[in-house]
């Protein structure tokens, strides 16, 4: 009799412990580390970010740069998330939404308020606005990626990714003739352009050298795919703007898992804008509606 009782107690304990263990495993694999915020404690001169657009990471300087569109400024942070500086080019910036900083300190900024790709030379203290055209039509720059001599721009009007040379002359474009809408985001990784088609809920992979593309249909429930990033293991991370989640797919388009949720608290997103893996394996989410950038790591 006693033996039976003991067996039952041991069995119950085992079930209880294994239950706790599996529920711990079922938690989000991504854990919140810190937020990049415009307002700093005990510093009245700082103010919250308003509609941050995109984030750029300078690996050498170990800095984050954020385009704070609503406040017409660019913000810089240390790798640890410590606020460094705000830059507004003497209040000349107008709705900056994306930024790339090159090794020589040259900054390229998309200023939507001017429809310009703006060149900022910090050493020379010079700012030059560039209104771009491609095949005789105005380009409306939306997202920017610079890879050496190549400048890739997503044109909001056509939904195509346009490749420009250093003199900002349009070379060629990557589009999706079969799509009812064009691309909404893209990234360049290992010689490939990965582009997200919102309406089709698909990712198109182009080789930068050729026109051929591969379509990856995302098989899973996505409300409003808005941005994509390729993870270190080659998984596709899709930012679902309206659901406030990030959905992860493999390269066949099969759904793996999703994480985060819609809201205003920690680990919650409200009208998020962009995704980026930093060189240190952390996932940066530009949480536009909450005026912050959330940094997660595994």
């Amino acid at each position: 009799m006693r033996k039976t009782h003991l067996t039952i107690i041991i069995l119950s304990l085992f079930i209880l412990v294994s239950g706790c263990f599996t529920s711990a495993l079922a938690k989000d694999p991504w854990q919140w580390q810190f937020s990049l915020r415009g307002d700093q404690p005990n510093d009245d001169k700082t103010k919250p970010m308003l509609l941050p657009g995109n984030i750029f990471v300078d690996q050498e300087l170990e800095r984050y740069y954020v385009a704070d569109a609503g406040n017409n400024r660019l913000l810089s942070f240390k790798r640890e998330g410590i606020y460094l500086n705000a830059f507004s080019a003497s209040n000349k910036l107008k709705t900056p939404t994306d930024i790339v900083r090159e090794k020589d300190g040259l900054m390229w900024v998309i200023e939507k308020g001017r429809n310009s790709l703006t060149e900022i030379d910090l050493k020379e203290k010079k700012i030059e606005n560039h209104s771009l055209q491609y095949r005789g039509v105005s380009v409306f720059p939306d997202r920017l990626f610079i890879d050496g001599e190549n400048t890739y721009l997503l044109d909001k009007s056509s939904g195509d990714i346009i490749l420009f040379d250093r003199k900002l002359k349009g070379i060629k474009h990557y589009g999706c003739p079969e799509c009812t809408s064009g691309f909404i985001d893209f990234t360049v990784k290992s010689g490939n352009i990965w582009a997200l088609a919102r309406t089709e809920k698909a990712v198109y992979k182009f080789n930068t050298d050729g026109p051929q593309s591969e379509k990856i249909q995302l098989k899973g429930s996505l409300a409003f795919p808005f941005a994509l990033e390729i993870g270190p293991a080659g998984l596709l991370y899709i930012l679902d703007r309206h659901n406030g989640t990030i959905a992860v797919f493999d390269q066949t388009g099969s759904f793996k898992y999703n994480f985060l949720s819609k809201g205003h608290g920690r680990g919650e997103l409200y009208y998020p804008e962009d995704l980026l893996f930093d060189p240190w394996g952390r996932l940066c989410v530009v949480d536009s509606g909450n005026g912050r950038v959330e940094i997660f790591s595994r």
Binding site: L51, G53, A69, G70, K94, T95, T97, K112, G113, R114, N115, V137, S138, F140, K156, S157, S158, G159, D160, G175, C176, C179, T180, S181, G182, F183, I184, R198
Partner: peptide, 29 residues
């Protein structure tokens, strides 16, 4: 006929399009 053509007459719309979030719908000539 491209977007630029419409904006030649409807200049006031251009001001609204020069926003952080605009409705220049993708994939349209």
């Amino acid at each position: 006929v491209k977007t630029d053509k419409c904006l030649e007459c409807h200049e006031e719309i251009m001001d609204q399009l020069l926003s952080a979030h605009n409705h220049l719908t993708d994939k349209a000539v």
